[in-house]
Design a protein around this nucleic acid. Structure first.
Lengths: 221, 221
DNA sequence: GAATCTGAAATCGTATACGATCGCCGGGTG
DNA sequence: CACCCGGCGATCGTATACGATTTCAGATTC
């Protein structure tokens, strides 16, 4: 049978996929019975899936009211990006000595494609490449707990992520330059602390750019 | 009615309490029906509670077999302490500028009690005070996501924690000295990076001491 | 016209029931 | 004697059922 198993897992994957892909946008109301019907299961496994997503902060839950995809206001964005800067910076540093020359080459290729695409800028495509780039640098992190936190951070921001670069296109250009600098550090086997600092600041720079933009937008309105 | 709410939450608190307090030791098998009977509820809320604990890595789960309190072998301990060093270091740094003089005073009092108790050393008591001390320093962290990760790390190590100091009593002495150094940095409003590094290294030193002890023990056997 | 009440619809919360799966133990077979 | 196999008990997985709670529209009152 192809139906390997476990409907709770099925529901979990289903919902998570839809959140990360942006089909369920923040605030979208997750009605148990509806999802259960869509999947052809009862509500019980769906409830369990939602509990897990709740513990991962992907959905919020209110007793007797229900679940909805976690809202991501400016404050939540700040908290999440700050946390991601922390854990991704560390993961990148731990991963750095283990990154193979082949991975460096591939990362550089991705970054060069990103640089070329700066002229005819497509935020969504750029965002995808951005993840691919960073993925190559942190995936070798030998501490699975840290790596898991990194993935959770990216997941949480996944559907919003386009907008960071679409709102602040200038940041994309700087970002590509910082990527190249980061690659050089890794190539030359720089001190882990230096790599960590560079990776962390790369992300906080994006955060700062976004916040500056938000501030400006608020003044505009 | 006193029974304010939600049996799923009740089960969650109940199980977590028992894990953290050490009544359910690592490997302890969590049988749904048993726990449900103890609480006077059905298995459904208990299952949900276990799903959440699973997402927090406090319990492991195997389909059709059941849940058990997460085992903490040397490798898991390493991963968890390393992660805690990362997030607690950062939380302490973010918290530092917000720590009040009163909190510093209380932290110093706790640390002096720890110092006094070094002569007639009680690992369990020392461990409790150790948490109280660090709590005072990181609880003002303004980023709730980071703070939550810190709490999860401590929870995960809670029942094991005695043994760190009971196995490596020499570490307790150094620990008290490092606490005082950390307090001085906070008092003088040191650079956040300096505070972060000090707090992180404080924890990695404990980890290193434990690993050295483990290594030595392995050679002894 | 605004505030409040009322009841129905939507949705959640939990109990119960029963089929499915796993692990173990005892008996058969080479 | 070692190995395999079949059945049994324990436990999980999920569906269904129904009571509890929230929400909101529409009527009612001041």
């Amino acid at each position: 049978m192809t139906a390997t198993s476990n409907k709770s897992q099925l529901a979990y994957d289903f919902i998570k996929q839809r959140i990360v892909s942006g089909r369920y946008t923040p605030g979208y109301r997750l009605v148990l019975a509806t999802i259960a019907a869509e999947l052809g299961v009862s509500v019980v496994p769906v409830r369990e899936a939602i509990r897990r997503l709740e513990a991962e902060r992907l959905v919020t839950f209110q007793r007797n009211v229900g679940a909805q995809v976690a809202m991501l206001d400016e404050r939540e964005y700040l908290y999440t990006m700050q946390t991601l800067a922390l854990v991704e910076g560390y993961a990148t540093a731990l991963s750095a000595p283990l990154v193979t020359p082949g991975q460096v080459r591939r990362a550089r290729e991705v970054n060069e494609r990103m640089r070329e695409s700066l002229t005819h800028f497509r935020p969504h495509e750029f965002t995808r490449q951005n993840f691919e780039f960073h993925s190559l640098l942190f995936e070798n992190c030998p501490n699975p707990h840290v790596l898991d936190l990194v993935h959770r951070g990216w997941d949480r921001l996944a559907n919003l992520r386009d907008s960071t670069f679409s709102f602040v296109p200038g940041r994309a250009h700087e970002s590509v330059d910082e990527h190249e600098r980061l690659l050089r550090l890794i190539e030359q086997g720089a001190d882990p602390d230096v790599v960590e600092r560079a990776a962390r600041e790369h992300r906080t720079h994006t955060l700062d750019a976004f916040l500056a933009h938000q501030g400006a937008r608020l003044l505009d309105d």
